[in-house]
């Protein structure tokens, strides 16, 4: 009974803390946020590894291997993409405000590779 109580309070507490923190995340970062939390949900990899803490029958082993594979894909891919995405948010480019008449020097930046 205390076990159940502990599990439920961990759930409720984490949900509440998560809710309060994530309310403050600006919409600008909603996509990286979702990508990061998505990676965190791959935490099931721990559960999948626990399956191998006892000796397994072949069907269990097959399912367990598949679960580890999928969850690792979720975790690694999620964190890697989030990092890449956050690197894209750039700031502090050279100020572009110039007097209207003046010709912009050497504009026409590199053409991004098509497609």
């Amino acid at each position: 009974m205390t076990e159940l109580l502990l599990l439920v309070s961990v759930f409720a507490g984490s949900f509440l803390v998560g809710y309060l923190l994530i309310l403050k995340v600006p919409p600008l970062l909603h996509t990286p946020l979702m990508s990061m939390t998505n990676a965190v949900s791959g935490v099931t990899v721990l559960g999948a590894l626990l399956l191998f803490a006892v000796s397994t029958a072949p069907p269990e082993r097959a399912l367990g291997v598949l679960a580890i594979l999928l969850a690792t894909f979720n975790v690694v891919g999620g964190f890697a993409i989030t990092d890449r995405m956050l690197k894209l948010f750039k700031e502090g480019r050279p100020p572009v405000l110039r007097p209207p008449g003046e010709a912009p020097a050497g504009e026409d930046g590199e053409q991004p590779a098509g497609g």
């Binding site: 502990l6 984490s14 998560g18 946020l33 949900s41 721990l46 559960g47």
Partner: peptide, 17 residues
């Protein structure tokens, strides 16, 4: 599986979603 870390992580992702 009786792992509270999983519960905590999952709950936070649930809140975010």
């Amino acid at each position: 599986v009786g792992n509270s870390f999983l519960i905590a992580c999952g709950a936070m992702v649930g809140a975010s979603g």
